[in-house]
Amino acid sequence: MRPLLFACAVTLAVGPAAARPISELTADAVNNHVLPGYKRLAERSQVLADVAQSDCVSGSPQLRAAYGDAFDAWVGVSHLRFGPSERDDRAYALAFWPDSRAVTPKTLAAMIASEDDIAQNPDDYADVSIAARGFYALEFLLYDDTIAVAGTDAYRCTLIRTVTGDIAALTDAIEDDWTGSYADQLLNPSPDGIYHTEEEAAQEMFKAVSTGLEFVGDTRLGRPLGTFDRPRASRAEARRSGRSARHVELSLAALRDLATRLAGDDAALATNLTNAFDRAQSRAEQLDDPVFAGVDDPMTRFEIEVVQQNVSAIRTVVRNELGPKLGVIAGFNALDGD
């Protein structure tokens, strides 16, 4: 009996006591990942709107730079799709993509052709189709060969100012909600709150990691990859502004930051996450193919497929190791139902 009791005592003293409580992991993620991310997005979006007021020419380097900065900030939080971002469909209005049926260019072209008055100010613009709002619509106005030169300069200028103003208003509203009460909800779960337990709060963060990785693999990489027989380079994300590969890199970096915070002081898990992310990120950096044009060529296509496989490998670590740590049971149907 004696050795057994001793073993139990050791387990109790060293095991649970050494691990950081789950609430601390969530707090770290909220305070050092989510809040700074949405703050950055709101600030850079305001800068973008301000720049557009003084310079609304689609080819303007200042405007394009401000656009790039704000879009970067969006990609850095684009996996955090719950709570404030989903209220009033704000995130959908900021990021209408993928656009499988080209609704964005069609809507913008129609609006420009008719010089629709709804584009006169951001408040009214909140009522237009979400396909004509946000970062992906703005990309057409700044970079597309057709849309960026359609109609009159004056109307397009108005449209650019309005779309950027709308982006600033949306991101400001998201940040307000986060700092106003939503962060508190996650940090202080209660039976009357949105999150009843610390586990539920942590699981929301876990879900952000796992759905974010799925989006990188299946959509950001999967869309241009298409199939071997039918690659779809023209479906790469934000290819007009040359940002497709950049988005993969930025989202992997953001997802790594969040996953690592959730791993806390679990050294074995942290190592596995580090290795898995290192592989994917270094492969992504080596691609040197900003818009995944290489999907058409069997040799370069292979390199992009490897990145996608590396993202799947991260997902496996997240599902099998990070999930159980945060109390997510990896049931076959729960993981991937229909």
Binding site: Y92, P98, D99, D218, T219, R235
Partner: peptide, 14 residues
């Protein structure tokens, strides 16, 4: 949904 975007949901808002 559209198979070129996997299982991504394209129209939740509407």
């Amino acid at each position: 949904t559209h198979p070129d975007s996997g299982r991504a949901k394209l129209n939740i808002a509407t």
